[in-house]
Design a protein around this nucleic acid. Structure first.
Lengths: 302, 302
DNA sequence: TGGGCCGTTGCGATTTCGGAAACAGGAGCC
DNA sequence: GGCTCCTGTTTCCGAAATCGCAACGGCCCA
């Protein structure tokens, strides 16, 4: 590093105890060297070498300075090595904003798998609704966003997209759980509904569909917490609406997809900020994540 | 020091997030600056800034480098101070962040006393709230922090700690000034209160205590300036709440401690950044300061 | 669709740095 | 004392790094 040049001069003079020998080692002339030493001594306001007939001896101030130079060089080397690590995939930080539906197993599974490979990579996972997630991208608060039904935005560059069919969720033993396969929405609506509130994309999607049909919604319980709704469904014969990727693997829970005639599938999007070059570790994670989502849910052109 | 010039450039660009603003601060042109940055990035083999439309953002590598730069500068300052100490004259600089309560006499007295001994030592005193003061330490904007009730932080190394009892402050002639000794909080609350606002630790402390009792606060005046509150108290029969160390020696003012049953005492902390070796001048000042505080307020294990 | 802000580039001027040689002083030796 | 050999230092000059100026292209926002 260029800025250490002068300090290297000092160290070399100290090592050899003579300007001429140090100059030879450094491939410069003694004149250049003596001037640099004088400059430093002027800046420090005190000599750092004792001039003796045999050459230059460090004085006490010089000893302190040389130790500092050595420390400083070692620390810079450490930083360089850390930076070199960064440009690989071994180190780095991934900031992910995701919808609540994915905190259950999609994101944890993926983070765990990636950290098993690269334990030096750290993560920040923020739960945001579909609007705020996009905002997090544009404000550099997140590198990646995994969201349901995000509002269309030119700032977003889609890395993976697929469809998620909304499912009716109930406990085992619920009348609707007697059968499997698609269920009609009207068959759900006769039961007490425990639905996400308007802070969640699922609810917007549902309201849109119902409004088109003029069907009223019989919402007994609404909540901003999908986890709360699931816990409620376990306690009474209510029906909730959730996406499969948000439903935990619990033997007490059953879910059946809503018939596509009643509710179009929602879009699941993994995106980054358009035009941004992500750090290597983050880009690599995004790649693997997209691949893994593809394997889980199949493709759908971005 | 000359060799830090380029590193200073990096730090300044990082601080301002833009080359042009940084160039203005450094009194050079943007072109010179952009070239230096590019040189460093070439030397490191990787960009340290992410170019965005609004300017320059540090990337992970840049974060590492900037932290190194800060450390390096602090260490050089320490060495310079040690060297100066060798030659007998102690010189150096002390950067102190303190709560507003101490600008009245605690800090000025101490600075004056120290400068009487070592006139070559210069001081920077920044007034920060208890949260920002800790941040100033971690960002190397301050060497020492003297604060009331700081949030617990692993980065802080406590050099001195004691308790400060909150006092009711009123003018001479106020009904409460008729007696001396502890006063109950409820006896204060019947008067118009002129209290610090929520930017000050005193108010947080007060709110906590009142919330626990469900007592409402009748805040006629609130201000972020303790000095303003004192001046107000001089003009009308209001009661303020301040710590003794912040109350000036003014014959027109009276203060009585709040009974410990109503308000627990607050903690007064002198701290530095953990693990940092302070320059000689700063360390000596910190020693003397801790001793002086001990003498004033008695000890209390850190 | 301009205006304003951003970083970047080419080029000429300036400052800094390094090289060659001469200078000054001390140590060892005859 | 004089000579030699070493040391660091100074002077002058050319080379190289650095900087300032003006212009360019991209982006955002009104």
């Amino acid at each position: 590093m260029k800025h250490l040049r002068i300090l290297t001069y000092v160290a070399e003079v100290a090592r050899h105890g003579a300007i001429r020998r140090a100059a030879e080692r450094l491939n410069i002339t003694p004149s250049a060297l003596t001037r640099q030493i004088q400059d430093i001594e002027y800046e420090l306001g005190t000599p750092i070498f004792e001039r003796v007939a045999q050459g230059m001896r460090l004085n006490a101030a010089g000893e302190l300075l040389v130790r500092h130079i050595r420390d400083q060089r070692a620390d810079l080397e450490r930083v360089r090595s850390q930076i070199a690590d960064l440009s690989g995939v071994r180190r780095g930080h991934v900031a992910l904003a995701c919808s609540q539906a994915f905190v259950n197993h999609v994101v944890p599974d993926e983070v765990e798998a990636y950290r098993a490979l690269f334990p030096q990579v750290t993560f920040t996972v923020q739960v945001r609704d579909h609007v705020q997630a996009v905002a997090a991208l544009t404000q550099f608060e997140a590198d990646l966003a995994l969201v349901l039904q995000p509002p269309p935005s030119a700032d977003m560059q889609v890395l993976f997209a697929c469809r998620q069919t909304l499912c009716a969720l109930m406990r085992a033993g619920h009348p609707l759980a007697a059968e499997t396969g698609p269920v009609r929405l009207r068959d759900c609506l006769v039961h007490p509904m425990a639905v996400p509130d308007r802070s969640l994309a699922i609810r917007h999607h549902l309201d849109d569909a119902l409004a088109r049909r003029g069907t009223p919604l019989n919402a007994v319980i609404e909540s901003s917490s999908l986890e709360f709704l699931r816990n409620l469904v376990l306690r009474e014969d209510a029906v909730s609406l959730q996406v499969p990727s948000g439903i935990p693997d619990d033997p007490r829970l059953r879910f059946r997809p809503i018939d596509a005639r009643d509710l179009p599938p929602m879009s699941l999007i993994l995106a980054q900020l358009r035009g941004r070059t992500l750090p290597v570790a983050t880009a690599k994670f995004a790649d693997r994540f997209a691949g893994s989502l593809h394997q889980r849910y199949g493709a759908q052109g971005p």
